[in-house]
Simulated scan of single mutants.
Amino acid sequence: MGLPQIAPYPLPSETELPKARGPWIVARDRAALLIHDMQNYFLRVYAPDASPIAPVIANIASLAAACRLAGIPVFYTAQNGDQDRRDRGLQADIWGPGMTSAPEHQAIVAALAPQPEDFVLVKHRYSAFQRSNLETLMRARGRDQIVICGVYGHIGCMLTAAEAFQRDIETFFIADAIADFSRERHDMAVDYVAERCGVPMSTRQLIATLDP
């Protein structure tokens, strides 16, 4: 029970990304960026100066800066610490009690601190759409595309992508801005999204699409 320590592994390169079945192209006036669960508690299981987490943090910072400059809304998910067992639900059976409310657990990593114009949503389940107003906030701003980055690839990131698809939201999965339990799990998540619900991209590719 609880999170494993995660050994370093290399992130996938652009040439390793699978071809998506979906034909979608990111549009700056339709997209929203989701920075998923980049809290200290979830990142403490990585070697901080190694891949995947060091380049993932740098890539997410680049994505966030480019999206803010392009007028794309930036959303974060973050779990609350010291969750009541009744609210935590079945997650407690799989992962234990989870994080505390101490900053070394609950805070979003300092390098990716939200800006005043960003949205921070309370995370309740694997998918960012569960028990949140993410879709409502997106639709109110004319956003029907979501760009996903963060942790962990084969859990919350992948299931958020799958649920976005089921809500008719076009999904873009930034493969080198996502970290996972292992390269095997990482590749599985990217392959699933490509085949079933979204478009894998690199950070460079996503930023290039935002150029005026």
Score class of each variant (00 low, 15 high):
Asn133Glu: 14
Arg68Val: 04
Val45Ser: 11
Gln130Phe: 15
Gly150Asn: 05
Asp187Gly: 05
Asp211Ile: 06
Ser182Tyr: 04
Leu17Ala: 02
Met188Gly: 13
Gln39Cys: 02
Tyr9Gly: 08
Asp180Met: 03
Ala208Gly: 00
Val147Ile: 15
Val190Tyr: 08
Arg185Ser: 13
Pro97Gln: 02
Glu195Asn: 10
Pro12Glu: 08
Ala32Phe: 03
Ala64Arg: 14
Ala162Asp: 12
Thr15Lys: 15
Glu16Phe: 01
Ala92Val: 05
Gln79Lys: 03
Pro8Thr: 12
Ala66Ile: 04
Arg30Leu: 03
His105Thr: 03
Arg21Gln: 14
Leu17Ser: 00
Glu14Trp: 00
Gln106Pro: 00
Pro97Ala: 06
Met99Glu: 06
Glu135Leu: 13
Pro200Thr: 07
Val151Tyr: 00
Leu206Lys: 06
Ser127Thr: 15
Phe165Ile: 11
Gln145Leu: 11
Met201Tyr: 13
Ala64Asp: 06
His105Phe: 04
Ser101Ile: 01
Asp93His: 10
Gly22Arg: 15
Asp29Arg: 09
Trp24Met: 03
Arg125Pro: 09
His186Ile: 09
Asp191Tyr: 01
Asn59Val: 06
Arg21Met: 09
Pro212Asp: 14
Val74Gln: 02
Leu69Phe: 09
Gly81Asn: 00
Gly142Ser: 10
Tyr41Val: 03
Ala111Tyr: 06
Arg28Phe: 02
Leu43Ala: 05
Ala27Met: 09
Pro116Ile: 08
Ser202Asn: 08
Arg30Lys: 07
